[in-house]
Design a protein around this nucleic acid. Structure first.
Lengths: 338, 338
DNA sequence: CGCTGACGAGAGAGCGCTCTCTCGGTTGTC
DNA sequence: GACAACCGAGAGAGCGCTCTCTCGTCAGCG
């Protein structure tokens, strides 16, 4: 079989059927596994498939079945920073693993410009995928609304904003943050500051909210500096906090990366961790255990998050009614920084 | 129009044609823009499209046109490290930008397990995409061979190994590395070591090859430590080099990340940069200009690389014969570390 | 005024597949 | 041994789209 010959065309189900001496319908049943077929014909079809290196044409298949066997995962474009530490890679790994079991495919799309977003909408509505997972939704992101009205299943990682109410899977941000702050109080810290995440994200909001709730009775005024989940941002924010209140003895950073920045800022300011300032992060990224000192942090089950996100969208695509939200538990991991 | 009604079905071209009072063929011509259509009917069709929120069904379209309007970009799964600094995000940005002009879509696939690779092959052969860009091909990767025989266009980022000869776009690794080493010699360094990249990658090989060629007449034996393109790897490799030859006065790191690690290792060993040891990196990632000292490095046009990769696969998909390879120039950027 | 050429638009086939409908053959039952 | 019941497999329609073929219409020219 010369695959490079110009007049060569991909084998169709018809070719397979002919070679196996059966009807196209039978060949289809064997290939798609939709109905049982007698052993003789079945093996004849399988042999023909192997001989011809037949691969079903997705276009034909999904034209009639109305399914594509693939799901989109939409990531924010400015992922340089965010990709840097485990979150998205781990999420992707979880999602991929979950789909691998059902022999489906994950395609990753990057939401860039406004035009790019429109094109993602077109992509989804054009029937390229059976469902969409929005990995990161922020404040005024038009994508949820753009997709919500299209009839194709959409789920969010963490809850979405705005008018539309999309089903989502998230982690217990508030519970984790509360546990972190409570732990700092329990070990006797009384001037507890926080490096908060962007208030445009649910994670940023919820973690800050829990901090405010937990410290409300302790502080006259909250010690909050907002940053963007990055190392550099965390470092700068911590420096600002130290300038505002030099007697800080506890710090809750709303992400591990920011905690890393905080560690650096504290080191430069001559503070010892955890003696002078106890630091707790959030995320439990891989490198949290190799920092100096190893980071006490709130673990979130990111791979599970990816898996559940996929399960949810699969269920929706199958026509099942799914619960509006699923919140996965977080857990405080004690290491050396607090 | 109630999009949530259960019996609601996506509008078809037939619906559009009927609403506009034209034939399906005319509607198709307007929507796909394949043929000119008289102004009256044209606007009637466009109005109907807007009214019905019509989006063409890709399955139907690509079934007959044999094109999908999307291309796959296959990334290695263990991208946690590699994604960390600009390379892949920048490559993706370039590729996306190039496709945006032609109204096509980039879908990103992760090559994980062997099973995952087979599924990527199936995905490609099933007609999901018009072509495939392999972003990172290493030593014994079966994917190039798996895809090479399928008739669908495949291009590589940097040359591929093994039996198959795939068209590729790369950067001038050898030229850039040679320029780096020559510069170190020019500023009077005589004991020049290198932290090489993985010998399983073309970039690792070519950059090391150039180093060996350039230092061949200077050193009795080469000062080489291999690492994996990461900060940690670069740090460890540099420590090894210092143990092997403490009098090193020049260092060429085959990636900026490794150069960062080298900077740290040198600092810990009490060496000043550039006074005691001059350091040159490779890649010119964003943070290279903010290191302490700012990194002298070899710039490579990564976004261009992404764009050219896409152009190449597009040309192949259009049936054009394309040159077997395209090598983009690199340039030494002088900053403070050498 | 009649004929030719050009061009715009409709009719209809068919891309590769799945699925319903139907029929033929086999088995079970009295 | 005859008839019903059942099951496995084929025939054929049709998913939504593009594209070729063909026809109708109008401008241009003799």
């Amino acid at each position: 079989m010369d695959l490079t010959a110009p007049e060569w065309h991909r084998p169709t189900l018809e070719d397979v059927a002919q070679r196996a001496g059966v009807s196209r319908a039978t060949a289809s049943r064997v290939v798609s596994g939709s109905h049982p077929v007698g052993e003789r014909r079945r093996s004849a079809v399988l042999r023909a498939v192997a001989d011809l290196q037949y691969v079903p044409n997705q276009a034909g298949r999904s034209l009639v079945s109305r399914r594509t066997g693939s799901y989109a995962l939409v990531l924010p474009e400015g992922m340089g920073q965010v990709f840097s530490e485990g979150f998205f890679p781990t999420l992707i790994r979880g999602a991929t693993a979950e789909l691998e079991d059902s022999d489906e495919q994950l395609v990753i799309l990057l939401a860039g410009s406004a035009a790019g977003r429109r094109r993602i909408e077109q992509f989804a509505r054009g029937g390229h995928v059976d469902g969409v997972v929005l990995a990161s939704v922020h404040d005024r992101d038009p994508l949820p609304e753009l997709l919500a009205g299209t009839g194709i299943p959409v789920v969010c990682c963490e809850r979405a904003y705005g008018g539309v109410q999309l089903p989502y899977v998230g982690v217990d941000n508030a519970g984790g943050a509360a546990a972190a702050v409570r732990y700092l109080k329990k070990i006797g810290r009384s001037r507890i500051a926080t490096v908060a995440g962007p208030s445009s994200t649910p994670a940023g909001q919820d973690r800050l909210g829990a901090y405010l709730r937990e410290t409300g009775r302790v502080h006259r005024r909250p010690l909050v500096a907002e940053a963007d989940f990055t190392v550099e941002g965390g470092q700068a924010a911590t420096a600002r906090l130290l300038a505002q209140e030099p007697r800080i003895d506890g710090l809750f950073a709303a992400s591990d990366l920011m905690a890393l920045g905080a560690l650096e800022a504290l080191r430069r300011a001559g503070r010892r961790v955890p003696e002078d300032v106890a630091v707790v992060g959030f995320d439990d990224v891989d490198c949290a255990r190799t920092t100096e000192p190893a980071l006490t942090t709130v673990h979130q089950p990111i791979e599970q998050l990816g898996r559940q996100l996929v399960r949810l969208v699969q269920r929706l695509a199958a026509g099942e009614q799914a619960g509006p939200a699923l919140v996965l538990p977080t857990a405080l991991v004690l290491r050396d920084s607090a």
